[in-house]
Design a protein around this nucleic acid. Structure first.
Lengths: 333, 333
DNA sequence: CTGAATTCTGCAATCGGTTGCAAGCCGGAC
DNA sequence: GTCCGGCTTGCAACCGATTGCAGAATTCAG
C-alpha cells in the first residue's frame, strides 16, 4: 500500500539502514548515498511512518494536551498558542478533555498506551496531585497555570497567583476603595485559593477590609449569579474577581442592577483574554502573559524530552495591570 | 522498562498469541486461559502498547481534528463536544491548527505519517478542495460545517447554509423590516457565500431589497468594524450577520453609535453559541444544533473506519430561530 | 468408545523502522 | 608499499504487538 523504507532502499540500491540514516538527523551517511536516497524517496513519494519509528526509537513526538475547562473562552486562546508552539517544534498535541473525570487514572493510562513523549496539563484548577500522578506514571509533565510549590515535584509554568492577589489589593487601595471583596472562582481551584490568599493578605497589609466569596465555576453564569447575590446583600465598593470570565459575568449582574461598573462598583479581573478588551466590556484586569507562558511550557516540555530526569523547575512570569473602564481612575494626590 | 506482551505471557505460562487474543475482542480464547492471562496482566500492571498494535493491525484510533479558526469562541464549544464524543468511542483527537496554512499539504503529510484512522475537518470557511485533498491522500475525512455538494466526493455534516439564509430573510420580513442587509464573514468562506446566496434569494422572493457586505474575518473586531462602516454610510433597518461573533461585534458598534439593537437596528446571527445567550448580549440568532452535528460527524467517522470505501454522504441538520432581544418583535396582524 | 467437527493454542512471519556491530572503504603518514 | 584511523555501509536483531496456519485439545454425535 504505502511506500516503505524498503521500497526506497531497493530503488536507490542501498540498504534500509542507509535510508533510515538519511532521514535521521546527525547520522553518518555520505553525501552521495544521501543524495540517491533522497532522489528515490522523492520519486516514490516516501514518507516515514512515525509510528513504526516510534516503536523502535521510543519517540512519538506526541504530547498530551490535557485540559478541564472548555467553557472559559480563555482556553481557546491557550489552545491556539499551544498548537502553534508545538507544531513549530514538530510536536503533536493529543487533546484530552478531562472535564468529567474526578481522577487522572484513565487519562494517564491512555496517554501511556499512546507512548506520548510528554504531557502538558493546562489547568489552573487542578491540585498538584494531578500532575504528580502523570509523573508517577513515568510521563514527563509540565503543569501550565498550575500552583507553584516550594519543593516542586513537577515542572510548573505560570504566574504567581498570590502576588497577583496582592497586586489587585494594592491597585484597589491606590484607587481609594475602602471596602473590597474577593469574588473567586471555585473554592477548590488552586488558582482561586492562591489569589484569595494574596489578596486577603495584601488588604490586611494595606489596612482595608476584604470580604470573600466564590463563584461556583470559572464561567459567566457563575460569576453573574455570585455578583447578583453580593449586590442583593449589599456590595463592597470593588471586587477582585477570580478571572476574566467571572468578571464579565459580574459586570452583567452589575449592569442589570442598574449600576455602572467603574462608577458604582469597581471590578478587576485576571487574565486579559481577548474578549476583555472588546468594546462594551472594557474590563480592567491583570494581564497574564500567555504567549510567554505557553512558549515557556513548550520549551520546558521540549527540554524534558531531551533529558527526562532533570529536576523539576518552576517558572513564573510577572503580570501587569491593564487599565480599562471598570475601576475608578487613579486619583493623584 | 514497560511491561510487554511477553512478560505477561511468561508469567501466565502461555504464548504471546494467547495474551494478544485475550485483549482483542472476538478472538478465540478459552475462559481458562483468558483468566490466567488477565490475572497475570493485572499483577504486572500490563497495558497494551497502542503504537505497536497499530503497526501490525493498521488501526491507530487516532483522529486528526483540524481547525482553522481559534478566535471564534464557538470553536471552544466545538472542541468540547468533539473531544467528549471521540473519547466516548475510544478515539483520540490529534489537534491540528491550520490557521496559518494556505494549503493542506503539510497537514495531510503529517497526518499520514501518524497513520491517523480518519480526519475531521472542522471549518466552515475552507473550500471543499481542502477536504478533498485529505481524501485524495487516502485519509478518510468528514468535513464538519462544510459545504454540501450535490455530487459529494467527501463526507459532510453540517447545516444547509442556503436555507438558513432564506430563513433569516423570512424572519426579517415577518418582522416588517423593509431594508435589510447581509453582513457576512469573509467573502471567501463557503458558509458566508451560501448564507448570502440564500439570504439574497430569500429577500428577492419576499420582495425586500438586500444590501451585501462582508467582515474581514469571523471575529468580533471585524464585525464591529464592518458595522461601523455601515452605520456611517447609512444603515439598513436590519442585518443578517455572518455568525454570532460577527453579530456581537456589530452590536458593539451599534451601541457605540448611540443606537439600540432591536429598536434602532435589527441584528440576527447564526450559531447560537453559549455567549450569545449571555445577559447583556441577548442576541437573536439561528441555532445550529451543534451537539447533533458533532455527534453525527463522529458517528460518520466511526462508520468510515469500519468501511473506508462507503460512498460519501451528506447530513444536514435543520436550524431554528432563537428569539432574544436584537430584533423587533413579531407583529401579529 | 470411535470418529468427525469445533474450538484452542503456539509457532513464526510480519507491520515499518532503528541501531549496535563489524566489515569495507578511503586517504594520509611513514 | 604498508599500516592506521576515521567514515560509510550492510547485516541482523529488535521495538511490541497481530494473525494465518497447522497441530492439539476438546466437544459432540452416533
Amino acid at each position: 500500500m504505502a511506500i516503505t523504507l524498503r521500497d526506497v532502499a531497493a530503488r536507490a540500491g542501498v540498504s534500509t539502514s542507509a535510508v533510515s540514516r538519511t532521514f535521521t538527523a546527525g547520522a553518518s551517511v555520505s553525501p552521495a548515498t544521501r543524495d540517491r536516497v533522497l532522489r528515490a524517496a522523492k520519486a516514490l513519494g516516501y514518507q516515514p511512518n512515525v509510528l513504526a519509528s516510534a516503536l523502535s526509537s521510543g519517540r512519538t513526538k506526541l504530547i498530551g494536551l490535557v485540559a478541564n475547562n472548555f467553557h472559559n473562552p480563555y482556553m481557546l486562546e491557550v489552545f491556539d498558542l499551544f498548537t502553534r508552539a508545538l507544531q513549530a517544534r514538530g510536536l503533536r498535541p493529543l487533546l484530552v478533555n478531562l472535564s468529567d473525570d474526578r481522577d487522572p487514572g484513565d487519562c494517564v493510562q491512555m496517554l501511556r498506551q499512546y507512548s506520548v513523549d510528554g504531557v502538558i496539563l493546562a489547568s489552573s484548577t487542578l491540585p498538584t496531585s494531578f500532575a504528580a500522578a502523570f509523573r508517577a506514571a513515568g510521563l514527563p509533565v509540565v503543569h501550565c497555570f498550575g500552583r507553584a510549590a516550594d519543593q516542586p515535584d513537577v515542572h510548573v509554568v505560570g504566574i504567581d497567583n498570590d502576588a497577583c492577589g496582592r497586586m489587585a489589593a494594592r491597585v484597589l487601595a491606590d484607587r481609594g476603595y475602602e471596602t473590597v471583596g474577593f469574588l473567586g472562582g471555585p473554592a477548590t481551584a488552586t488558582s482561586t485559593q492562591d489569589r484569595q490568599n494574596g489578596f486577603v493578605a495584601g488588604c490586611a497589609t494595606l489596612g482595608i477590609s476584604a470580604q470573600v466569596s466564590h463563584a461556583a465555576a470559572y464561567s459567566f453564569a457563575a460569576g453573574r449569579a455570585a455578583m447578583q447575590g453580593l449586590i442583593e446583600a449589599g456590595p463592597a465598593q470593588a471586587y477582585f474577581c477570580g478571572d476574566d470570565v467571572v468578571s464579565i459575568g459580574a459586570l452583567s449582574a452589575i449592569r442589570d442592577a442598574g449600576l455602572v461598573a467603574g462608577r458604582d462598583i469597581g471590578v478587576i479581573g485576571l487574565n486579559d483574554m481577548e474578549m476583555s478588551g472588546w468594546n462594551g466590556i472594557d474590563l480592567t484586569t491583570i494581564r497574564q502573559p500567555m504567549t510567554r507562558i505557553v512558549g515557556a511550557a513548550v520549551d520546558m516540555v521540549g527540554s524534558i524530552l531531551n533529558d527526562p530526569d532533570q529536576p523539576p523547575e518552576t517558572r513564573l512570569f510577572p503580570c501587569d495591570l491593564v487599565e480599562r473602564a471598570t475601576l475608578r481612575p487613579l486619583t493623584l494626590r
